[in-house]
Structure formats: C-alpha cells, structure tokens
C-alpha cells in the first residue's frame, strides 16, 4: 500500500467539506485577533482603530489583583479538569459492573439530568441548599456534629463548592463518552479472560481500564483547552463580597471590565492570552501522550 496520490485522493476529498467550513467560519474571522493589539472602536473598524501594541496585555497584568485572579482561575480549573475526567471514568466503570440493565439505564439517565440546568437556576438552588442558616447540607452535617460550614461565604470553601458542584453537574454527561467506548470493547476479550480464570477485578484492571485509556487521554488533552476557563456562568452567579479575593476569575473580571463596557480589544487580548496558554499545554500533552503511551491524540 503505497501512499500515492491515486490511493489517497478520496481521503483529501473527504476532508474537503470540513476544511471548507473551517476556512470560512474559523480561519477567515481569525483576522479579528488583531483587535488584541488595538484600542478597537467599533465605529472606526479594523482600519481606523489605533494600534496600541501590548497595551491590553499590560493592563491585564498590571492590576494589583491580576496574579491572584489568574491563580484563582488555575486552581479552580485544574481541579475541575482532573475531577471531570476521573469521576466520569470511574463512574462508567462502576456502572458497567451493574448487571441489572434497567437499573443501569435509569441511573445513567438520572445522572445526566443536571447538565440541562443553567447556573442561574442552580445558583439559586445551591444558595438554599448550602445555607448556613437552615440549609439541608448544614443540617445534615450539624446532626453529626460538624459545621455549620460557610460553603459560599469563605474563600477556600467557595472554591471547593464551585469545583464539587461543577463535577456534580457535568459528570453524567461526561460519562457518555466512556460508556460508548465501553460498548466498543470486543466482548471476546472478556470471554477469553474468563476462560483463563481471571476474576472480575482482574478483567477490569487488564481489559476495561486499558481499553478506556485512549479515550481518557483524548478527553483529558482536549480539556486542557479550558485551562484558563474556570466556568463563567457558575462563578458569576455565585460569587459575592466575602469570596471576591479567592473566587474572582479571569472571565468574571473580563466581563466586568470589558464586556459590559464594549471593550472588544481587551476581551480579545485576554482571549488570545488564554488560547496561547492552552495551545502550549495541549502541544505538551500531545507530545507526552505520544512519547510515553505511544498514542497520537489528534
């Protein structure tokens, strides 16, 4: 099988629709990135707005709280990325062990429901649920002699709450990918293992987990693109004066200082900064996966 053009031209052709869409809807508008270096005024446009070099980037880093905000973002998003990978992974495996099909399906449907609630709604529910003043969680904790815990009014607890509630909201949806990957495993592998006398635990360890790993690597690598997105909607709906210090993230900061003001230039600059960081991380992850797992993510 030589990779000559006669054999591969259908492959190029197959890529054509996606590529055309990509060029028109992604690469053409990419020119807008120049805004990051402009004091962009809508009425002056790209031709007329003055260039300001790295002014927006300077503004991003010059505030007293810049580093704190970036740090908050990183802490929250790193934990979210880790747990939003591990929890669905583990959940899929555990669910796979349930032999009662109806139960499997019911549980699966139930855990995927929270994905469909917006943070505006969930924010209100969480405030009630986690209240130190008669909220359900604190009443339960109080019954066993703990608390009350200020889940939303103390910086460290706030981060904890934000991470846990996000994982809770999304893990069911994230599980779907792994369930599909599980369905792709060749059942004859298990049959063979059983013949060899391997127990359930061994089958999981030597067949299920290795089969899911590629998908985990892919999902994990792609989620690095969110390394500086800690979840705008969620935090915007939950943060308050008591947790500003540890809860303010890049996106809420940009919203207050740029989006509301119509400052497209600054918003673009921050977006570019986030993209560059993500790109570096994704390239690193790609290299590592290729080097150590011999797996090509893209």
């Amino acid at each position: 099988m030589k990779p000559d053009i006669r054999r591969t031209w259908p492959l190029h052709l197959m890529l054509l629709p996606a590529l055309a869409g990509l060029i028109v809807f992604n690469y053409v508008p990419l020119g807008g990135i120049v805004m990051a270096f402009m004091d962009y005024k809508p009425w002056l446009g790209f031709d007329g707005s003055p260039w300001i070099g790295f002014g927006h980037f300077r503004a991003l880093f010059e505030r007293e709280d810049s580093l704190q905000v970036i740090w908050n973002t990183l802490v929250i998003s790193v934990f979210k990325i880790i747990f939003n990978l591990l929890v669905p992974f583990g959940f899929a495996i555990l669910l796979n062990e349930v032999r009662i099909r109806l139960l499997t399906r019911t549980i699966q449907t139930m855990v995927y429901l929270p994905h469909f609630l917006s943070w505006v709604i969930l924010g209100g529910i969480l405030v009630n649920f986690l209240s130190t003043d008669g909220g359900f969680v604190n009443r339960v904790l109080g019954a066993i002699g703990i608390g009350p815990i200020p889940f939303l009014m103390h910086g460290d607890w706030f981060r904890f709450t934000v991470i846990v509630s996000d994982v809770w909201k999304e893990f069911g949806y994230g599980t779907i990918v792994f369930l599909a990957a599980l369905a792709n495993i060749d059942p004859s592998l298990y049959e063979a293992a059983e013949v060899d006398g391997a127990g359930r635990w061994k089958q999981t360890l030597h067949i299920t987990i290795p089969s899911l790993l590629p998908m985990a690597i892919v999902v994990g690598t792609l989620s690095l693109g969110n390394i500086l997105n800690a979840g705008f909607d969620q935090i915007f709906n939950l943060y308050n004066g008591m947790v500003m210090n540890k809860g303010d993230i890049i996106d809420t900061f940009v919203y207050r200082t740029a989006i509301l003001e119509g400052n497209f230039g600054f918003a673009t600059a921050v977006g570019l900064f986030k993209s560059v960081v993500s790109m570096v991380l994704i390239v690193c992850a790609y290299r590592l996966a290729y080097k150590y797992a011999n797996y090509r993510v893209f």
């Binding site: 990779p3 591969t8 508008p29 807008g32 990135i33 805004m35 962009y40 693109g225 570019l272 893209f298």
Partner: peptide, 29 residues
C-alpha cells in the same frame, strides 16, 4: 504513513479548537 499530510490537516483542525477571532469578525462575516 498511510495518508501523507494527515498531520498537517490534524493541526489545522486543532488550531481552530483553541484560537478564535471573537464575535465582531464573525458577525461581519
């Protein structure tokens, strides 16, 4: 090795996953 140019294509795709021009140019488009 089966499809020369594949990696170029792949990175062309992945690049757009991460970088985007934002709302204004898209609206104009």
């Amino acid at each position: 090795r089966e499809f020369r140019g594949r990696s170029v294509y792949a990175w062309l795709f992945v690049f757009t996953l991460i970088f985007n021009g934002g709302l204004v140019p898209f609206y104009i488009l």
